[in-house]
């Protein structure tokens, strides 16, 4: 059984967090670090920069090598250096992390990306990666290469387009930090239905609630007033799972359009967890799916479990 099937084994989890700048990525990195530490997962930090047009790519590379001689480092490496510094500040008790020194000269290219060599990185399980190109394509390649379980991504201005592409094409669970406020007290809202991914979302939800101590609510939405056996069974399973872990759960059963109901219920003070769609990918591409539409329309952090 691989780790992607059924039970989650926190010891082998690998999370990836995408950062863009010190100015905008602080909340993303903070939550990435927090989630990775509560799950005891290894954390990859990736910066995806713009790729120069192929016409002038070699001129840009030649300039960068010349800049190295002047000790001027690539702007993406500066962001990764900031990320490491920030991770150390967020985890002051982590001795193995404290020992790591960033050295912009210690980078090597492999598999179409640049990896920063961090002495002792195995002990603290941090990786710093620089990639260039289109965001979704580069994240997909990184996740496939390293078999990440979860990608943590900040909210984007280009939400509609990006939400669709991220959910459709990234082969891991996805956590999109829309309007995430690290100081805010969130309630965990688990969207429960009869899909296959519900079971795994419940496991993720239980782990997060257990570690962070957030209150948990489950929400089951039916288009009609009648809740089928599948929906009722999934809600019961979720309740039993949480109670088994000693976590209290509030259950809600609402009727209406699922996406609109999710979004209205979530408001701005929930942290939503939902399963990835089991619809055929072609149908998802053409008509969208509940996770895609929920991500597009809501304004809260959402974890979509695959």
């Amino acid at each position: 059984m691989t780790k992607k099937q059924e039970k989650i084994n926190p010891q082998t989890l690998k999370f990836l967090t995408a950062v863009s700048s010190a100015e905008y990525s602080k909340p993303t990195l903070k939550l990435g670090s927090l989630i990775a530490s509560v799950f005891d997962a290894s954390l990859g930090v990736v910066y995806v920069g713009e790729r120069a047009s192929e016409f002038h790519g070699s001129s840009v590379n030649m300039t960068r090598q010349n800049l190295d001689n002047w000790n001027i480092i690539h702007p993406g490496l500066e962001v990764l250096e900031w990320a490491l510094k920030e991770l150390k500040a967020l985890n002051p008790d982590d001795e193995s992390l404290a020992k790591i020194k960033f050295n912009a000269d210690h980078v090597y290219e492999e598999d179409g990306r640049v990896r920063v060599f961090l002495p002792g990185e195995d002990a603290c399980r941090i990786e710093l990666i620089l990639r260039e190109g289109e965001l979704v394509n580069q994240l997909r390649k990184e996740i496939q290469l390293e078999n990440y379980d979860l990608a943590i991504i900040g909210g984007s201005q280009d939400k509609r387009h990006l939400a669709h592409s991220l959910i459709q094409y990234l082969p891991s669970s996805i956590f999109v930090l829309q309007k995430f406020n690290p100081r805010k007290k969130y309630k965990l809202l688990l969207l429960v239905d009869d899909s296959k991914a519900t079971k795994k979302s419940v496991q993720w939800g239980a782990l997060i609630a257990e570690k962070l101590g957030w209150p948990v609510r489950t929400l089951t939405v039916s288009k009609t007033k009648r809740f089928g056996a599948g929906y009722q069974g999934a809600a019961d399973m979720a309740k039993a799972y949480f109670e088994d872990k000693g976590i209290e759960v509030e259950q809600f059963f609402l009727t209406g359009d699922p996406v609109r109901t999710f979004v209205e219920f979530a408001g701005d003070n929930h942290f939503v967890i939902m399963g990835a769609s089991t619809l055929n990918p072609v149908k998802q591409f053409l008509f969208g799916s509940k996770p895609i539409k929920t991500l597009e329309r809501s304004n809260v952090p959402i974890l979509i479990v695959r």
């Binding site: 920069g49 713009e50 120069a52 047009s53 016409f55 002038h56 001129s59 840009v60 300039t63 960068r64 702007p75 993406g76």
Partner: peptide, 16 residues
């Protein structure tokens, strides 16, 4: 634009 001339692409790649 940054794509027209190599010099423009080069300064754009600085991120500044």
């Amino acid at each position: 634009t940054a794509v027209a001339a190599p010099a423009c692409t080069i300064i754009y790649s600085s991120g500044l």
